[in-house]
Design a binder for these strands. Structure first.
Lengths: 123, 123
DNA sequence: CAGAATCCTTTACGATACTG
DNA sequence: CAGTATCGTAAAGGATTCTG
């Protein structure tokens, strides 16, 4: 494939980008990488996510088939979220980005600082 | 790294996710993969992006050090955007996502349809 | 043709309080 | 503790118009 028309036009590609085009999807998938986790646990792990947004995001991931919700009867309530098989396939690409961040993250921050200092900053 | 605390806590990881956490960043980087391109060209290639958003996004990518802007004097104006070396390093992870989309995109769409049919859809 | 300027709509996200 | 309900804000994205 030499032209990228084929790639960009394909709605599956757009779908993949859209999956990432929000603050928490990727973070949550990643937070679930080691196995089932309870909501409170996830909130701790992630930090900075409100209960409402956590639920919303998990619901979205659930209807995308990436996450499974399991509720155990009883009180206090106990709920666990797990990655589905499909969800687990997402870990690799996400990890690729993680690796990229470790290698090049500081370059981006440096560029950002430079831009800001030059007055081209997005502040 | 067994726990993901280290990963999620690192601000570089968050930075990487934030880079993707918008509709057009990844798409634009990808659209520039084959070399310099002019804005009009990009708009064609991508489809569905308004001139304003295109400029905004390119500016942001520029101040992140991922894209370079080159303007040639004269009329009509001619401008070209190119990936920087840093920007090019992003192609691999992005491609990983593209590959994922080709393999699993339909599964997501199927899950979405299923969820919608069950009344759990996010409509 | 590049892109700045305006205006507008949507929605993602956050804070908080409340229920089972 | 899980999750919902409300409310509020900020920002992203889109449509359009105008200028060098």
């Amino acid at each position: 494939m030499t032209t990228d028309h084929g790639f960009l036009a394909d709605c599956r590609a757009r779908l993949a980008f859209d999956l990432l085009a929000n603050t928490w999807n990727a973070v949550l998938v990643w937070a679930l990488r080691d196995g089932p986790a309870r909501p409170g646990e996830l909130r701790e792990r992630i930090g900075g996510i409100s209960p409402k947004v956590l639920t919303e995001t998990l619901r979205r991931l659930q209807s995308d088939g990436l996450v499974e919700r399991r509720a155990y009867a009883g009180s206090p309530p106990r709920v666990e979220y797990t990655l589905t098989g499909l969800g687990r396939t997402l870990l690799e690409p996400i990890e690729a980005f993680g690796a990229w961040a470790f290698e090049h993250g500081e370059d981006v921050m440096a560029a950002r600082d430079r831009a800001e200092a030059t007055g081209h900053g997005r502040d």
